[in-house]
Design a protein around this nucleic acid. Structure first.
Lengths: 191, 191
DNA sequence: ATACAAATGGACGATTAGTGTCTAATCGTC
DNA sequence: GACGATTAGACACTAATCGTCCATTTGTAT
């Protein structure tokens, strides 16, 4: 699933159109105009509006998971690396749409058109977090037996917390603060 | 042309919908939803989308002209009062739409549906400015003969400058700075 | 409880906008 | 000029929106 330069250019242009108008009200004409190409040649790159959206979701997920892996492979202790990974996930797949007044529709459409990719990415995130925690446990950096759980359990809770926090009311700053508080709790619990 | 509470409520709700989607893509269903009423009862207040838009434009112009008159009747010298009046005009009738990506469409639709109101307001603005300048001249505060012109000429130039400056590229701050510079020029020229 | 007005959901035909497809014409590059 | 890429424009089809209508519900006053 590699994209040529033109397709990438189109997806770059399409994102803000979807963010502004939502899926239903974003027309192929709008997207073509934003990409400075004709509607005809838009259909040369993507066979349908749904295919285009799916390609955008796929690209965003691929990019984001690369960022997540980089964050987990970076410097710092397990907790700060996990925090960075969560931040990368949020920044790549949630924040861009949070500002949209059609965010709900966009997430629904995404689940309708790219459910597989979305769920795989979510599962991969959990796996990666679990792996990082398992490594830390092996290195005696964390003690998961203190909470009587396995790495994958903790990973699931972390992701679920991120999910819950993102749905809670409040602006971007409050959200980040809540996530950091959660990470401090985690650190205190299993360090 | 008095509006009841419900109509005012609807127009309040409709404005951000028009700003976000433009006229064409803003549906009556969108507006009804924003106003928390049914589409059916939206049509009880306004017979059509065009009538609703026109009512909104009319209300905005009426409110703004009241602000303009208040500014010209306020404290300070002629120049600062004129500056306030221009700012009120801009704040009431231009700034709310400047942020919209469909600003061009909205201004076009406004000229199609509420041209009369818009042109009368513009003419009234010129008249009010000319009146203020004439008063200042009578009080020997300004000397229009220095530029060999009549109050109405100056007023027209001020409004035209505002128009031109608003169409120039740059953000809100640059625009305000440009207008203030223009006012300093005027002050220097006819004080 | 009854009467009345206001508001609603739902359906309607008519109209418009959008989708996806196709072709002939144009553009840019070799 | 030849070539592939891109385009405008038209096409049939579908979906969305408009403006209208009415039966029903909701709220309020009596």
């Amino acid at each position: 699933m590699e994209l040529d330069a033109k397709s990438n250019h189109i997806l770059d242009a399409a994102l803000p159109v979807f963010v502004r108008h939502g899926f239903r009200k974003a027309s192929m004409a709008d997207i073509a105009r934003a990409a400075n190409i004709s509607r005809a040649s838009l259909y040369l790159s993507f066979g349908s509006k749904e295919e285009l959206f799916r390609a955008g979701s796929t690209r965003a997920h691929a990019r984001t998971m690369r960022q997540v892996e980089a964050a987990l492979g970076g410097n710092g202790d397990v907790f700060s690396r996990i925090e960075s990974a969560i931040a990368a996930f949020h920044h790549g797949l949630i924040a861009p749409f949070a500002s949209s007044s059609d965010a709900v529709e966009l997430f629904e459409v995404n689940m309708a058109l790219a459910k597989d990719i979305t769920l795989v990415a979510r599962a991969t995130l959990v796996d990666l977090l679990a792996q990082a925690l398992a490594d830390a446990e092996a290195a005696r950096v964390v003690a998961l037996d203190r909470v009587n759980s396995k790495p994958v359990d903790i990973a699931n809770v972390v992701v679920a917390a991120m999910d819950g926090i993102k749905h809670a009311p409040g602006d971007e700053a409050k959200l980040q603060a809540a996530m950091q508080l959660f990470m401090r709790l985690l650190r205190a619990a299993i360090s």
